[in-house]
Design a protein around this nucleic acid. Structure first.
Length: 447
RNA sequence: GGUCCCAUCGUCCAGCGGUCUAGGACACCGCCCUUUCAAGGCGGCGACACGAGUUCGAACCUCGUUGGGACCGCCA
């Protein structure tokens, strides 16, 4: 016997950019498809003529690609169960509506078609994540006062409603497993009634826990960054967003928290997804991002940081690639985001930002004199190498009864304009003798 | 208001009746390294919401209470 091939789908409506909640849903669908060797289908639910736009569809597709989520069937990819835009599947919805009308299960109200909710039907939603949920058809669709409300399936404008279109499409597209946000649990009974009316087999349902803002309310634009591209702009890596989002409602187990797509794919299990809504925690995201940043190879790191240097007004292309890569390696694990890493390392790219933030006015003339003595020696030292420079510095400090700190800090400030940096001598070594001389001369520390 | 869902450190997860004086991670705090920390090392603080059952035994099962959330559109 062969298991039915898994077919899952992500069905966004193109009424806005892909944001965190949607990205989370898409991610879990993708993980399940890839884990089980099934297919990941992208369907565009553009039945809201007012709000849907091709531009939004584009940004959603781009957002998914940015996250590294590829789909096997979709509006641009094609597939055997197309078309993949609901606006292009209107015939199916209408034909089915007529069928319901003919069978007396629905009635017309003007141009709209309304499905008559049957009374007294006991149903059980077998949810892979939430378990069994029992509902009575009388409560599947209600007015505010609790009275039964029939379900509109075709709107007056001829377009299908959400609850109707999903059912028809999930059936027609042979979707085997519906994975979506928990906010859809209350819609499911209505949909089950429709499946029942058509005599169709139910797909597997798996509702994902909501993602909440720090205030524990459903995440929305008012919580700050909404679109995945905003996270990209802030300096978050797609791999980190992927990793972090996967951690919301699921664990890889064995204390594994940092992983790539491949590991997540092999370890993923729908049945192990949590029920509890998860708060989107920026601190944790920062940590995950930093870990991914650390794991990047030198060249990849440079390529990712370069645009951020440019947006700081710097010109990394004027530097050797090798030099920039060495600089970033020197930075070690510093910086939680690519943006921070770029800012923290700006002095390697250009002297400009250093001059902007440091003017050496904190150095008294006495100190300056002492510093000049040391730096003169340093600049003329035969070997321009970190360890040798440090050795020289230590010896000089010993003979001059000066704490190393008193010369290391001014040097750091003059070279980087910052109080924090990798080891100064390593920084100096990488910057090069000429560059160091130029910077120190600017501050009147030598010459 | 109605329907449904959820409930372990501040946050994300582990825990599936005994191995729990509840484990990890983030954050926070402290210490160490050191020329600096935004890097690295070490440690600390910190939770089973409450109340009844069931059971020899409950974080784990049941019920209730409380708290939180989602949904109640010819939006999706």
């Amino acid at each position: 016997m062969t298991m039915k091939d898994v077919r899952v789908r992500f069905a966004p409506s193109p009424t806005g950019a892909l944001h965190i909640g949607g990205a989370h849903t898409a991610l879990f669908n993708w993980l399940w498809a890839r884990h089980s060797g099934g297919r990941f289908i992208l369907r565009i639910e553009d039945t809201d003529l007012e709000r849907s736009t091709p531009e939004y569809e584009r940004t959603i597709l781009d957002g998914l690609k940015w996250m590294g989520l590829d789909w096997d069937e979709g509006p641009d990819a094609g597939g055997d169960w197309g078309p993949y835009r609901q606006s292009e599947r209107l015939d199916g919805y209408r034909r089915r509506a007529v069928e319901l009308l003919d069978r007396g299960l629905a009635y017309k109200d003007g141009d709209a078609v309304i499905f008559k909710v049957p009374l007294g039907v006991e149903m059980t939603l077998h949810d892979t994540i939430y378990g069994d949920i029992n509902i009575q058809s009388d409560r599947a669709s209600m007015n505010q006062d609790g009275s039964v409300k029939d379900i509109v399936i075709i709107k007056s404008d001829g377009m299908p409603t959400y609850n109707y279109a999903v059912v028809v499409d999930d059936h027609d597209m042979n979707i085997t497993c519906v994975i979506r946000g928990e906010d859809h649990i209350s819609n499911t009974p209505k949909q089950m009634l429709l499946y029942r009316a058509f005599g169709w087999e139910l797909p597997e349902f798996a509702h994902l826990p909501m993602i909440l803002g720090a205030d524990k309310k459903k995440l929305s634009k008012r919580h700050g960054a909404a679109s995945v591209f905003e996270f990209s702009d802030m300096g978050y890596l797609p791999d980190a967003i992927f990793n972090f989002l996967a951690l919301l409602g699921w664990t890889a187990g064995n204390d594994v928290e940092i992983f790539d797509r491949e590991l997540a794919t092999t370890l993923f299990d729908l049945a192990k997804v949590t029920k509890k809504p998860a708060v989107f925690d920026m601190d944790k995201l920062n940590f995950v991002n930093q870990e991914h940043l650390k794991r990047l190879g030198a060249a990849a790191r440079r390529e990712i940081i370069e645009p951020f240097w440019r947006s700081l007004g710097l010109s990394p292309e004027r530097r050797e690639k090798k030099y920039l890569e060495d600089a970033l390696s020197l930075m070690g694990g510093r910086g939680r985001t690519t943006k921070e890493l770029a800012e923290f390392s700006d002095y390697f790219v250009d002297f400009g930002p250093v001059k902007e933030r440091y003017d050496a006015s904190d150095i008294s003339s006495d100190r300056r004199l002492a510093i000049r003595g040391f730096l003169g020696e340093l600049l003329s030292s035969p070997e321009w190498e970190a360890a040798k420079m440090e050795e020289l510095a230590r010896r000089w400090c010993e003979t001059n009864k000066t704490p190393l700190k008193d010369i290391a800090m001014p040097l750091r400030l003059a070279l980087t304009g910052r109080k924090v940096s990798p080891g100064v001598f390593e920084v100096a070594a990488l910057l090069g003798r000429d560059e160091c001389r130029a910077r120190l001369t600017h501050y009147g520390f030598v010459g």
